[in-house]
Design a binder for these strands. Sequence first.
DNA 1: AAAAATAAGTCAACATGACTGACATAAATG
DNA 2: CATTTATGTCAGTCATGTTGACTTATTTTT
Lengths: 186, 186
Amino acid sequence: MTSDTPSPNGRQPAHQDPEPALLDLVELLFFAYRDFTREPDKILVDFGFGRAHHRVLHFVNRHPGMRVADLLDILKITKQSLGRVLKQLVDEGFILQEAGKTDRRERRLYPTQRGHELAEQLVAPQIKRVARAVEASGKEAQTCIEKFLRQMIREADREHVGKLLETGKTHGDVSTKPAQPRGPVR
Amino acid sequence: MTSDTPSPNGRQPAHQDPEPALLDLVELLFFAYRDFTREPDKILVDFGFGRAHHRVLHFVNRHPGMRVADLLDILKITKQSLGRVLKQLVDEGFILQEAGKTDRRERRLYPTQRGHELAEQLVAPQIKRVARAVEASGKEAQTCIEKFLRQMIREADREHVGKLLETGKTHGDVSTKPAQPRGPVR
DNA sequence: AAAAATAAGTCAACATGACTGACATAAATG
DNA sequence: CATTTATGTCAGTCATGTTGACTTATTTTT
């Protein structure tokens, strides 16, 4: 038994939180994320896709020329799991594969026109939601929100993710030079 | 084709973002959440449970006396899905059910001692992670982070969630009066 | 008191996306 | 030539979600 007085029937009273505001953040993060993924999920249904497809497509769209190994590294799923959704995306013309120029074992991944469009369609409601939330929080809040989210990433990955965000900005095709892979969404 | 000049082979160049900082937030949210759920996931394995169990147990622990209908309402999953994990949690002694005092159709849900302890064990790393991230972002950041996360919740649910967070603070048992249900985690 | 509505539980069937572990192929590297 | 690497694949399993129809107990409404 804990410090709380237990009911005679073995039930437990609600937990007395040492820092209620932090627990609120924990729970708000759940709700925020739940709704953050809702709109894309709805869109995906029409394409017969699921979340996994979104992740992969988002990555590849933001990082044309990304390798399978890079995806595995960031999604942290198994080859099997990735292989299944990737194959579907390729078969249905959303992603195309190409042998690496310098290392022909590699399969470089690129979004097709369709893939690019779907990726945009999926991320649009997420950007809109974030944009509105930032505005409603006061524009100056953006800095601390970004800081907070970065700090939420486990220390071992933090720098890596930082680089991914950077290289995501440098637009151009990366088919010749590996380039750091970058973040998915959801 | 979009405004970007497509490669001759049908590949698409990386997307030129209208507001790169917002897209960063979108992706950081993914990474933050990914790592936010990692530690509880690891713990759950030892109990033969998954994320669904975490959600249900968290709810019930924070809201003793919650009804099945309340859980369904907030988790937004089907009775079948909830039923499966709830049954496991009951069978293995983490949650107990009791007919409502005023309305005996209801099944009021309560954490047992074990359930209470597991819920605490699961939320602990999440609180720790949030606490550290808040501190590293400057303590004054907490306000705008909370604002932001609240605004990320879809408008239709925002007030409801606000109430849930409130009632979660009022500690006591709610077996006689329904009380607003409250937020899960993850 | 009979009828309707509500809370919960249940059945059967199914889809998605994750897992494991072993193995195959092609190509690069030593 | 041997080894390592990048990728793909086979076969099977599990967790968690879905749908829709139906039952039971109980409360509420007419």
